[in-house]
Structures are given as structure tokens and as C-alpha cells.
Design a protein around this nucleic acid. Structure first.
Lengths: 347, 347
DNA sequence: TTGATTTATTGGAACGTTCCATTTATAGGC
DNA sequence: GCCTATAAATGGAACGTTCCAATAAATCAA
């Protein structure tokens, strides 16, 4: 199958006995063309196996119909859910999202962003890789390309962000734990180079303080934001002289790891140690025990991000407001009361 | 920030006091340019905030560095794992994979493929959506664009396929179940419009026959290939007059659903009913009980697909051999012996 | 019939690159 | 000094579209 030289609108024009301009008009669905002519052209298009060259077209009109979605961890189901939400919105607007993975690697991210820009995307939705420097998006901003961040923000950037209310989510979860009688709590996973980490940890700390937990009883163990990280966090915590009885985890993956590690130690998550997650990925409800988690409505955030992007594109601006999505705590079976509570602790 | 008209190589040329040709050469890393000139040009590129226009370039040289990966279900962790494998090999070849989701919808798939082709990708790696018609890829083949299928194949297509050995995997799993003493088995999930379904079901049936299971004792329940589908399958099976004691599931998602439904019924997966999955996604080992599953080496398949694609691109061919990946059964805790076995059944 | 108006169609320039064929500069040999 | 060889830089055509301005054909008013 020798790949013959690609057909162009000129080939179509010849085939249909019209001019290239006419073909172009038909391609764009212009009403100016007589229906029967249009039909003839469409037949020719089919016959020659034509494929539209958007690169050439963009040379003139610079209006691509694709936007790039750049995510830091494709294997986190959270992003898949979010992508699905975005797709719903974009599809009806006739635009196609291309997804690229950075695997949490800033260098890879750089390459991916470059490639996407070169390809002439109309906009970018990005969940920045950890360790992204503030200059990474300068080029994009200079080019006047609409861009929005999801989930994560960069310290001093003014790029609009679509993210859940991390602070409030952590607050709610922590209050729940305290309400169950726990008096020595730990925050598991994440690291301080993530803005999200500070937001969630902040909510945790404030709730502890507001609800009367002593500073020395609010612990923090940093770690990878994965199952593996969760396992490590629990080991660390249980090795303490005075271990905590409940944990708020940076995300669900960490929480799954923690529950796994508890089991391995012969402890029952929920009964022997309370754990709550963050994100509420679908797996959370299917775990054993089902995981109590802060639901962030991933698909909704995806839709929101898509809407904001759409608006930016059509209003030709590069500015937009942040959007903080509502969260709520989904209580399941992973948080029992403190075993040692009721034994006459503080009021 | 008024988006000034985009900078082109002519702007760079003016800025650096050279000709556009020189700039082009520098851009391509040609050694023909004097180092100090190149440096001056590179500085100018930086200064004017230039972004390369690959569309314009492709107009002349038609050598894109992006390939499209089209997948039918982004939320299946299996594909994320596979994508990661692909990315490893593509990255070192300097090519960037863009991922697009079809959500198992042939219409959406059509749009996505069209968009990718228009964008001028160098090749396509596709896991076709269910219900894809055989004509869906005619355009692509006509255009002489390299394309490979992963996981799924189309009935009469001659497009190369990279997939696991479904038949053998099912055979192994079934033999394992029979070895545990089970004598009445069921195949759960999937439907006959999928070639993969026939392959896996075929392995199941042949193993049953070869190992002396009566035809009336080898059951089949079709269903969605998701957790939900698995739940439904189990309900159906348990409602039978003479229910099976073990199930081979179409994939891990179905298996998870089955285990969930068992629990809901007060039955313990493994002890009261044996279940084995297919794919061995990461979650399988973390489930409770850990799921026995047919490992298909998703990342390996991704790498293989990428290699095949690379070779097709550089040899300018559209033909390649199929590749059937090795599988192996990972035995964990979800398959106990038949409770009623040992009570003097057939030899 | 003529001119004006509307409806269909068309040629040509422009978009931002690459690459071939040239030109210009630099160096070496005599 | 001239001639040749090599190195470095350049102009212009081409790629496949869009879109403006212009033309051609059809319709209508008078």
C-alpha cells in the first residue's frame, strides 16, 4: 500500500470541477454554496480520501479546536474522573481535549507543554508537576495562551486555579475524628513543596486547635502521596513513644496504604485506628472497610475547569477568577471511636 | 496583557540581524552555523518569546513528532499502566504521545480519530471502542498512517495487534480453579461483540472440557465489564437452581464487583466462592482478600506497542506482525477449595 | 433592452516554515 | 596577486489552507 501523496483541496477541486475556494467553503459548511455543488464536492472528498490539514488552516486563521490537558499522575484515578467531566463539556463545544502525562517530572512537563504549544492548542489545563518552578509557564503567559491550573497552584503565580476547598475539607474531617473521641491525631502524607499540602495541613491544625487538641497531640508525618507512602507513614507513627489513634491522610491513596499496613500489623482499620482519606475516589466506597473520605467532586471540578477555559477562549482573555469547589465529608466505616476514650480524659 | 501578534522566525531574524534561513537552521540544530551566530539567534528567540509553529513546518516536511493514543476507557487503571509503559519508550525517541478517550463510544471515537489525523500525528495506537465498525479505520489506512491496535482487535481487520494471550490466560486460571476441586464453574462478564470475550471464554471452555468438566457444569453469564457488571453477574449466578462454586471473571473490575456482592450476601470470597480476575491491575494485590488474577504485564504491552509503532514509522510501512504477550497466573487468596469437594465426587 | 441587485463561484495573496540553489566570506596553495 | 576549496549565510519557491476582492450568472425592475 504505497502511501500516495496526500490529497489536498486542489485534488478535490479538480475531481469535482470547481475551484479550491469552493471546496474550502464547503469544508467550512458555508451556506453560500449551491446544495448540489456542495454535494458534488463532498463526494469528491470521499473519493480521494482527503484528510483536512489543520496545520495549514491554522496558518491563516489560528483557531485550533484542541486544548491540552497536562496531568501529573495518570495512574491516579482521580484525574481520570476529572478528565471525564471535562470531556463532557468540551464535546458539546466541538473541541477535543488531548491528555498528556508528566509523571510528576518537571522536565517531562516542560517537553509536553512545548509540544502542545507548538501544536497550536487553543488552551491548556494543567495540574502542575511537583517541583515546578515559577518560570515554567512564563512562555505560555507571554504567548497569551489561556491556561488554568487544576488541583494545584504555584506559590506566586496569578494563573487561575480550579480546586476543591482543601482547608475546609481537612477541617471537616478532623472535626469528625475529634468528635469520635480521638485526642491524639496525625496528618499523613504529602510534602511541603505542595501548596495543597499546606492547605490541607492548615485545616487539620486549625480544627485541632479550635476543638481543644493540644499542640503536642497534633502530629505530622510527611510522605509520598501514594499507597507506598501511606504504609511508610503508619510504620513511622506506630513506632512513636505515644502513637496517635487517628489519621487524616493527604489523599485516598495514602489512606489505602495506611489501612493495608494496619492489617499487616493485625490491627483493624476503623476499630483499632481511625483513618480518613481525601478525594473520595470510586474505590473508597469499595474498600474493606469502606473509607471515610472528603469528597471533592472530581468530575464537577473537571466540568468547571472546562467551562472557565471555554469562556477564556471566546472572550480572548487570559484572566479568570479562581474557583474553589465545595467539599463534603462522606462518612463510612473507617473511623471508630477512640478505644481509650471515655476513660476520663479532659472534658 | 494584549496578546501581541505571535513572533515568527522573521522577527527573530530581524532581531538577530540574520536571515530567516539561518534562524531555521539554528532551530534544527544544524552544525552549519557558526557557534557565535547560533548563540545570537538563540538569544533573540528567547527575547521575542518565540514559539515554534509545527503546523507550518509540517507543511513542508510532514514529519510530526506526536503520536495519538486512543483508548476506550480512561478510568480503567489498566490503560494508565499501559500508557506509562509507552511513554517510557517514546520519550527516549523524542516523540510525545497524546492520549484521547473515547469512553467506549464509537461516535466519539470517530471524532477523536479525525481530530488526531487533522493534527498530523505520525501514528496511532488504538484500543477500539466496543461496537466499532470495520469501516472506521478505512480512512486511516487509505492515508497510509501507521496504526496498531492494543488489547482489542476488529473481526476482519488486518491491522497489527498487540495483546495478551487471552486464551492461555483463561486456560491457566480455569485449570487452577479445577485443581482446587471445583466442578461447577462460571465465566462472568463481557459480551460477544468483543473479540477478547471470545478468546477468554474459549480458553475457559477448552480447559473445562480438557479437564473433565461436564458441559452442563460450565456456565456463562454475560455482563458489563465493570464492578457493577460483576455484582449483577453474581446475583444471576446465585439465583440458579444449582449455583456454581467458582468464577473466572472477564477482568479485574468484574471480579471486584463479584467479591463485593459476595460480601453483601454474607459470603466470604475465597472461602465460600472462588473468584479469579483478569489483567492483574495494581489494586488486585491490595484487595481483601487479595485477588488471584491473570497478569498481562500492561506496561510491557505498552512498551511493545510503542516499539512496533516506532519501527513502522521509521520503515515507512503500515504493516507489522501481531504480538501476543505472555501471561501468567498470580495466585493470591481469592480461591479456596470447593467446600463440597472431597465428598466422593468423580475421580 | 439596460442597469441594479442578489446569488454562486473564483483567482490570488498571505500565513510560517523548510530546503534547494546561490552568493558571500574565509582560508589555503601556488 | 589569482584560483580553488571550504565554510557560512541567504533568497525564493513551495507546502495546504483561508479570505478578500472580483467576476460571472441569474433575477428583477423599470
Amino acid at each position: 500500500m504505497a502511501s500516495r501523496p496526500k490529497a489536498t483541496i486542489l485534488d478535490i477541486a479538480r475531481e469535482a470541477g470547481v475551484s479550491k475556494s469552493t471546496v474550502s467553503l464547503v469544508l467550512q459548511g458555508s451556506g453560500l454554496i449551491r446544495p448540489e455543488t456542495a454535494l458534488r464536492v463532498r463526494k469528491a472528498i470521499e473519493d480521494v480520501g482527503y484528510v483536512y490539514n489543520r496545520g495549514a488552516a491554522n496558518l491563516r486563521k489560528a483557531h485550533s479546536n484542541v486544548i491540552g490537558m497536562v496531568i501529573n499522575d495518570l495512574t491516579n484515578p482521580f484525574f481520570a474522573e476529572m478528565a471525564v467531566g471535562m470531556e463532557r463539556v468540551f464535546q458539546s463545544a466541538g473541541i477535543v481535549p488531548f491528555i498528556a502525562n508528566t509523571a510528576e517530572n518537571p522536565v517531562r512537563q516542560e517537553e509536553v507543554l512545548k509540544s502542545l504549544m507548538e501544536q497550536g492548542v487553543a488552551g491548556l489545563i494543567v495540574s502542575p508537576a511537583r517541583g515546578t518552578t515559577s518560570g515554567a509557564f512564563r512562555r505560555i503567559e507571554m504567548a497569551g495562551l489561556p491556561i488554568v491550573f487544576t488541583m494545584r497552584r504555584l506559590p506566586e503565580s496569578r494563573i487561575p486555579v480550579i480546586a476543591p476547598d482543601n482547608h475546609r475539607g481537612a477541617w471537616l474531617a478532623t472535626a469528625h475524628l475529634i468528635g469520635k473521641g480521638h485526642r491524639r491525631l496525625v496528618f499523613f502524607g504529602g510534602s511541603s513543596d505542595l501548596v495543597v499540602y499546606h492547605e490541607r495541613l492548615g485545616g487539620f491544625r486549625e480544627a485541632c486547635e479550635a476543638l481543644g487538641i493540644a499542640k503536642r497531640d497534633t502530629l505530622v508525618v510527611e510522605g509520598e502521596t501514594s499507597r507506598k507512602g501511606g504504609i511508610a507513614c503508619l510504620e513511622t507513627a506506630l513506632a512513636m513513644a505515644e502513637p496517635p489513634t487517628a489519621a487524616l491522610c493527604f489523599n485516598d491513596a495514602v489512606a489505602f496504604g495506611v489501612m493495608l499496613a494496619l492489617r499487616k500489623r493485625g490491627l483493624e482499620p476503623g476499630a483499632d485506628f481511625a483513618v480518613v482519606g481525601f478525594d473520595d475516589v470510586i474505590e473508597a466506597q469499595h474498600y474493606m472497610p469502606a473509607l471515610t473520605s472528603v469528597a471533592v467532586d472530581s468530575a464537577g471540578l473537571g466540568e468547571r475547569a472546562a467551562h472557565v477555559m471555554l469562556k477564556m477562549i471566546q472572550s480572548r482573555t487570559t484572566r479568570a477568577e479562581d474557583h474553589i469547589g465545595a467539599v463534603n465529608l462522606v462518612v463510612r466505616d473507617s473511623c471508630g471511636p477512640d478505644r481509650r476514650a471515655g476513660m476520663g480524659d479532659a472534658a
